[in-house]
Design a protein around this nucleic acid. Structure first.
Lengths: 196, 196
DNA sequence: TCATCCATGTCAGAAGATGACATCACGCTA
DNA sequence: TAGCGTGATGTCATCTTCTGACATGGATGA
């Protein structure tokens, strides 16, 4: 057995989410998170640049997935179709962990500074998507606008998917639509709005 | 003469922008800003909830203007047309202070935590726009999507307007397009993207 | 003239964040 | 198997942001 318990980072992430949901983000100190994880405060800040970042580990993977989908999309699609489908396809992956997504989103929704961080990550996602489009030869401002629209569609699709089926007791009456489908539906709505 | 120099708040805002541009946001402490303004640190935090907020006083007015435009728009327009024109009209106002806008944007572009705050303000703007649309009878998700699209168009239009004419010396060769027109142009591009 | 108001100052302290240095199990190599 | 380097973690000190409690003293109006 090692000198310390393994996976400090994972324990910190789990403890943070629990505490944020239980007591709220501001009421939870980094010392609390560290204590529950059996490490010191200093160790927390070695793994995460700041207190918020502990909830945003996954966004790098998400962004990479979106970029890959854009890079490998069929050539006969429009910029918006490419980004929209990349978002939807990525949504299929995230959508597999509905419960976790919901807990995390609850914590974020309850605190403005977590929302700020989330918005920054989404802005980075939009920038990366725009870059990936440009690499395919899409010009500006088309690339940036399509990327922003894609992120908007992701946001709305995600919101509605989370709100869809409350975590309450009782049997699910309907199978909730997948996150990917929710995003695709938002894309269709956006296109009809713009077409009118 | 009063006991103190008048307009502490204004002095703090001016000093903060100067110092952020001169030395950067992180290198500037609240104590620095307060000292240059001839007040104490504590006074800074009486006027501004946190260090970032000193750059975001104007966004409340901006939001109110957008909401008014949406509320008073003609009845025969689509949701996207309404939001787009509200953004463009508001842009005409902001566009009057190009130099200030540029300095402020320079400071924000150089620091992630200022970008976070800006994104939060834009998200609030989107939420307010969506609310104003709903008050006109626009349903969901149309209202939210049109609002997000409107903010995207504002962002891109603003970016391109700022980048348009560098602040260099020499005579301006072309009259730079107005911010409002830049936003209208972004809206047209978005619609053509979505239509394809 | 006096009361009271209010912008600002003073002081103390919690929490977030960071640099410098210490510790010590583990595994490699001689 | 003795010794050595490595890397994850601990310890300590310090700075900055932000907040609460209370003090001060010109301005204002009864």
């Amino acid at each position: 057995m090692g000198r310390w318990e393994p996976d400090s980072k994972g324990r910190l992430q789990a403890a943070a989410l629990e505490l944020f949901v239980e007591h709220g983000y501001e009421q939870t100190t980094v010392a609390d998170i560290a204590a529950r994880s059996g490490v010191t405060e200093r160790t927390f800040f070695r793994y995460f640049a700041d207190k918020r970042e502990v909830l945003f580990e996954g966004t790098a993977v998400l962004q990479a997935t979106v970029v890959e989908h854009i890079a490998s999309a069929a050539m006969d699609l429009t910029a918006l179709e490419i980004v929209g489908e990349a978002m939807a396809a990525t949504g299929e992956i995230i959508g597999q962990r509905r419960e976790y997504s919901q807990l995390r989103q609850t914590a974020i929704a309850a605190n403005a500074s977590l929302q700020e961080r989330e918005l920054l990550k989404l802005a980075a996602l939009a920038a990366a998507a725009a870059h990936a489009l440009r690499d395919r030869g899409v010009g500006e401002p088309t690339a940036s606008l399509a990327a922003e629209a894609g992120v908007a569609v992701f946001k709305i699709g995600f919101e509605r998917w989370i709100a869809d089926e409350p975590t309450g007791s009782g049997e699910p009456v309907d199978i909730p639509s997948s996150l990917g489908d929710s995003i695709r539906s938002a894309l269709l709505t956006l296109r009809s709005i713009a077409a009118a």
